[in-house]
């Protein structure tokens, strides 16, 4: 599954990032990279954007960007 399908209060482990170099690095700088645990914390009205807890911070991304992040649900 991708992070687009994430549900509130669940934690996911990122298994792959399919994005061109520039956005991939940008995502990595924010903590969205392979092996990172992210928790879906908050959704704006109509579910876009969505905020995730990642490496101790809360970062919101647009729904269209979440497709690039393949995840697995983690405990």
């Amino acid at each position: 599954m991708t992070l687009r399908a994430a549900r509130l209060d669940r934690t996911y482990c990122i298994t792959a990032v399919q994005a061109p170099d520039a956005p991939r690095r940008h995502l990595a700088a924010l903590g969205f990279e392979e092996g990172a645990l992210v928790t879906c914390l908050l959704a704006a009205p109509r579910g876009d954007p969505v905020a995730f807890g990642v490496r101790g911070a809360v970062i919101a991304l647009r729904k269209s960007q979440l497709q690039a992040l393949t995840v697995q649900e983690a405990g």
């Binding site: 520039a22 940008h26 954007p49 809360v58």
Partner: peptide, 11 residues
């Protein structure tokens, strides 16, 4: 097209 968007929500 819209570009990369990331917004930090501080506590």
């Amino acid at each position: 097209e819209p570009s990369f968007f990331a917004l930090e929500l501080p506590p």
